[in-house]
Computed example of a mutant assay.
Amino acid sequence: MILTRGTRATGAVLCAVLAVTVAGWLVRDVRAVGDPGELWRYWAGYVDARPKVGPATSAIDVAMLVVYVVAAVAAVRSTVAAAALVATGVTTLAVRLPGLWNIGADGMDTDSPTSSGPAP
Results as ranks from 00 to 15, higher is better:
Asp48Arg: 00
Leu3Asp: 07
Val13Ser: 07
Leu100Ser: 08
Val30Lys: 09
Asp48Ala: 04
Thr21Gln: 10
Thr114Phe: 09
Gly24Glu: 03
Ile2Gly: 02
Ala59Met: 09
Val95Asn: 04
Ala84Tyr: 11
Gly34Met: 12
Ser58His: 06
Gly11Pro: 01
Ser112Pro: 09
Val20Arg: 03
Met108Asp: 01
Val66Trp: 13
Gly34Asp: 12
Pro55Trp: 09
Ser112Met: 02
Gly54His: 11
Asp29Val: 08
Arg96Glu: 10
Val80Ala: 10
Val67Pro: 06
Leu26Val: 11
Gly117Asp: 04
Val62Met: 11
Ala72Ser: 12
Leu14Tyr: 03
Arg41Gln: 14
Ser78Met: 09
Ala71Cys: 06
Ala72His: 05
Ser112Cys: 06
Pro51Lys: 00
Glu38Asn: 04
Asp106Gly: 05
Val66Tyr: 12
Ala63Trp: 13
Ser78Asp: 12
Val95Gly: 04
Asp35Ile: 04
Ala84Arg: 05
Gly99Arg: 12
Arg50Thr: 15
Val76Ile: 11
Pro51Trp: 04
Met64Tyr: 06
Ala82Leu: 15
Arg5Asp: 10
Thr7Asn: 09
Ala87Glu: 06
Glu38Cys: 04
Thr91Cys: 08
Arg96Ile: 01
Gly6Trp: 05
Asp61Gln: 03
Asp111Thr: 11
Gly6Phe: 05
Pro98Lys: 05
Trp40His: 13
Ala74Glu: 06
Val22Asn: 07
Ala84Asn: 06
Asp61Lys: 00
Gly117Met: 07
Ala75Arg: 04
Leu65Ile: 05
Ala23Tyr: 07
Ser115Cys: 07
Leu26Gly: 08
Ala9Thr: 15
Asp35Ala: 10
Tyr42Lys: 13
Val20Gly: 13
Val67Lys: 02
Lys52Met: 03
Val47Trp: 11
Trp25His: 15
Leu18His: 04
Arg50Cys: 03
Cys15Arg: 10
Tyr68His: 15
Gly89His: 07
Arg96Ala: 14
